[in-house]
């Protein structure tokens, strides 16, 4: 894999790596996907969702409805038990709820990890890692151990680590849930910046409706377990987005609608 770092602007996104196209030119397609765990728990039932390249889709839903399961199915961490999933997993980014850094590696070596697993040459690894560390605003912290970083800084390292592989599809599983509001909003902006600059396709799981609306081009509401898609909301605002957007009337209105839908989802 050559890691070409040229990127198009967000709305167009990047084409699938080898030109092999997915159904309808989409980046990710769930087609009647269901997932039943070995113990009989139904995690997902009949999920249908198509995500176009360069879209940023947030997923909200009641706790335990299967949002993480959806990402795990899409990334191949677990295998679904029914239906079909199309996704190009070759350049996949994935951040978890916590930063999942290796505590014995310095920031620099943590960011190099995935490239190491992909057998990038050492020289290239160092160069790309330095670039991504700068991108997430951690220049100067290369030689720190994670133990000495704040929660927000750890999350940035985690982002840099995924970005190093130049992901075409980037999945976020509640990455900022544990952070304070201000740090969270700043990281939201950073992710949008990255999204606009790198042009990946994003799926973002969150519990915060304003966060979902602020970041996404589409917000998906999932129903109670076993999760299915209940509603899809288009977000009409253009990228890049300004923090003031959060205080606009149409922003609040959309949040309200999604909130109502989520309430319905929880009540079943």
């Amino acid at each position: 894999m050559s890691a070409d770092s040229t990127s198009t602007t967000a709305p167009e996104g990047r084409a699938a790596a080898d030109g092999a196209s997915l159904p309808g030119g989409n980046a990710i397609v769930f087609d009647h996907v269901s997932m039943t765990f070995p113990d009989g728990t139904e995690g997902l039932s009949d999920v249908n969702l198509a995500i176009a390249p360069g879209e940023f889709v947030s997923i909200v839903g009641p706790s335990g409805c299967g949002k993480s399961t959806l990402l795990k199915v899409a990334s191949g961490l677990v295998t679904h038990t029914g239906g079909k999933v199309w996704v190009d997993r070759d350049q996949l980014g994935y951040t978890f709820q916590d930063a999942t850094l290796l505590p014995w590696r310095k920031v620099q070596d943590n960011v190099e990890l995935l490239m190491e697993l992909r057998d990038f040459p050492a020289e290239e690894r160092r160069r790309i890692a330095a670039e991504k560390i700068e991108l997430v605003g951690l220049k100067g912290f290369e030689n720190h151990y994670p133990q000495r970083l704040s929660g927000g800084m750890k999350m940035r390292v985690s982002l840099a680590r995924s970005l190093a592989l130049n992901p075409a599809v980037f999945m976020f599983d509640e990455p900022f849930g544990a952070l304070d509001e201000i740090t969270r909003e700043r990281l939201n902006d950073e992710v949008i910046d990255l999204f606009v600059r790198e042009g990946f396709t994003g799926i973002f799981v969150t519990h915060s409706i304003p966060e979902a609306v602020y970041m996404s081009s589409k917000v998906v509401v999932m129903s109670r377990r076993p999760g299915r898609i209940q509603d899809i909301f288009e977000v009409p605002f253009a990228y890049p987005r300004a923090p003031e957007m959060r205080y606009q009337a149409d922003f609040s209105e959309l949040c309200g609608e999604i909130s109502l839908s989520l309430r319905k989802a929880i009540e079943g």
Binding site: S75, G76, L77, L92, Y94, F96, Q97, D98, T100, L102, W104, L113, L114, E116, L117, R118
Partner: peptide
């Protein structure tokens, strides 16, 4: 070892041996 650290290695198709060397053994040290 943290479940998600293992997932991280799995997502890169790391072999069992690489996962042992780079994640599990240092963690168990």
């Amino acid at each position: 070892v943290d479940r998600n650290i293992l997932n991280l290695f799995k997502l890169q198709n790391a072999s069992w041996w690489v996962t042992l060397r780079k994640a599990c053994l240092p963690f168990a040290g």
